[in-house]
Design a protein around this nucleic acid. Sequence first.
DNA 1: TATGAATGAGCGTTCATTCAT
DNA 2: CATGAATGAACGCTCATTCAT
Lengths: 210, 210, 210, 210
Amino acid sequence: MTADVEVRLRADARRNRDQIIAAAKVMFTEDGPEVPMEEIARRAGVGVGTLYRRFPDREALIRAVAQSNFADVLADAKAAETEEPTAWDAFVRLVGRSLALRLTLQFPLWSLGMWEAMRDDLEITRFRDEILAILDRIVVSAQQEGALRPDVGSGDVAVLVSLLLRRMPVPTDRVAMMTDRILALLFDGLRAQPGGLPGQPITPSDLGKD
Amino acid sequence: MTADVEVRLRADARRNRDQIIAAAKVMFTEDGPEVPMEEIARRAGVGVGTLYRRFPDREALIRAVAQSNFADVLADAKAAETEEPTAWDAFVRLVGRSLALRLTLQFPLWSLGMWEAMRDDLEITRFRDEILAILDRIVVSAQQEGALRPDVGSGDVAVLVSLLLRRMPVPTDRVAMMTDRILALLFDGLRAQPGGLPGQPITPSDLGKD
Amino acid sequence: MTADVEVRLRADARRNRDQIIAAAKVMFTEDGPEVPMEEIARRAGVGVGTLYRRFPDREALIRAVAQSNFADVLADAKAAETEEPTAWDAFVRLVGRSLALRLTLQFPLWSLGMWEAMRDDLEITRFRDEILAILDRIVVSAQQEGALRPDVGSGDVAVLVSLLLRRMPVPTDRVAMMTDRILALLFDGLRAQPGGLPGQPITPSDLGKD
Amino acid sequence: MTADVEVRLRADARRNRDQIIAAAKVMFTEDGPEVPMEEIARRAGVGVGTLYRRFPDREALIRAVAQSNFADVLADAKAAETEEPTAWDAFVRLVGRSLALRLTLQFPLWSLGMWEAMRDDLEITRFRDEILAILDRIVVSAQQEGALRPDVGSGDVAVLVSLLLRRMPVPTDRVAMMTDRILALLFDGLRAQPGGLPGQPITPSDLGKD
DNA sequence: TATGAATGAGCGTTCATTCAT
DNA sequence: CATGAATGAACGCTCATTCAT
């Protein structure tokens, strides 16, 4: 019974927490990392105080949102790896179709401070490492399949995608088509076999040392 | 004499204006679009009052900086078109080597409001149209040369580049190499002849309607 | 059975109340009258809600703490009066050695509002009157003994002590010695017989009219 | 002419600064160190922004007020030393009659943090050292005159006074008389020759090491 | 006209108090 | 009756913009 009460309480708190993160995810994505905390609270249907009870400051909230995003990406990556017939298919699905990936990647680009905050977050680091490990497996397999050019590393892919998948400030109805074309161009570039790329393939550990 | 005085004043004012824009260009690039106006003024060596005399508000200043950037890009584009032996070379130079282009492109991505402000600025629109016209000529020529795949439009290129050329939040010594590799991948994709891209080539007028 | 339960509850409640007051006493003394209520509750090992159930607001809690302090002082005063051989000894013990007195006296000095709150508290007033009555008896006796100068009233002593016995913001190891010296100076002043003090001796009833 | 303009500007700013400090002095004294900054600004007749332009944060303002207070005390101390016929007279005047001293002394008692902030302020330290040096001279002279007991140091006096001269939370009309009586008691204690005080005389350098 | 002082709205954050569980 | 989650008012501080000099 006591347990029951506590579970109920937790359920409530949990729901609030989730609502806050959901609201923050939307508002950060729409309005950038400086949206007034009060707006986030309003959108989540709670008071500011509640928001601050769960997340002591803005950075904590951002980290929580990032964790949530990374968790989604990890799920996507796992699904892509296990469900697709070829590594290239998995690659295309993960890079080209993961909405979670898109949302996640525009996050750390906000500012250097944010980048660092996220790098120091253990949870996020863990997610990131897992994701990169999966991506690395996919890249290597796709190269063994002969579908992906051999002179790229999974780090190249990560950088490329992180640069590419950001919100375009154009009317939304056009974004979809544009994005598809850009991705197609990108895949063509990644498939091409010819001459070498400059420098060395970028690996996950290159990124890790940032 | 009066004229003389006025001319002098104008020279002074001109210098102030230029210093302010130069300072703003640096600080916007380094610290984003929300740097305190007073910092910009300090860096320009003038008082805030002077800044506000020249640019009634932040948006006006941003527009002025953008104009200046676009003018630089236009100069780059003209030089590329006239000085390079082939259209493909001009294309690579403009897209891959124009620092002005890079700086310019990270600008309108700051926010939707900024994008709109710039679209409504007559001067900027003029620059932009000229730039896109040149880019379009280069693209068409490069396609006639057989160097550039025929199923892309100059709008594709503009979008691709605008997404690609942004500051990466990684240590600077690594950025150069990463950028080179990404650009090489991109050019390979653009060179590839194979199957079609989805949708229709994006043209300058597509972008104009945003 | 119901009675039993209620008695049990009362015992519980009583214990909670005591813990809260004990915690508050410590924290008010250490951190001043504005310590967050939640900290007090945490230290007392109860939830804020419980604290507020017992004490409707901060002032109520402060009054309760003050009552407790005054009760301790009264006990000290009674003990001093009955246990010491001479009135002067009782006087020195009460004024110079009563820790309860010291703690109590830094209390009402916090603010005028607090002072008034305490003056309007019937319980506190009763304690205070009893304490002052004892002090007055001691003062008169000590004067009859010839030990204490005749031109002071117990009110003088009360005022003097209330000003004197406050925490000094210096490293604690030095405080003890300083306090001893100050008290010795004070007692010398009180013992001295010479010329008159200005004004009239301050009596308990003078204080009562504040 | 330019100079003239600048002087005018400075005069304005100076006046604002002075008004802010004056207001802060009053409000800190009346309401403690946590009065809302906005109240201080209102009382000074300026906006919050102006206040923050001059004093980057609350601590800076407090330090400025303290400096001003200490400067006043120093002036009082100098006047007492030069104008009074005997060292004992100077002593009584400084300790017993300096309003500036009274106001100053309730300052550092607010909190440990404040005490430290003031100790790290070079300006304040300088004033303090000068004041203590004068007090020390006065104490020594008064002892040579035979008026002041020889077993106290100027540090004893400083501590005693700092404890003694604080606002009493009683109706103002009674404060004056009470204070006079307390001071008279104190002076009697200081004059008395009998037995020794415990510990060693407290010197300015003892205080300096706090 | 250039300056920088003044203003005040706005956001982050804390905490007293209330109330659902 | 205990708990601790939720609320929102209040205050610190920043900065865009205005305006006196």
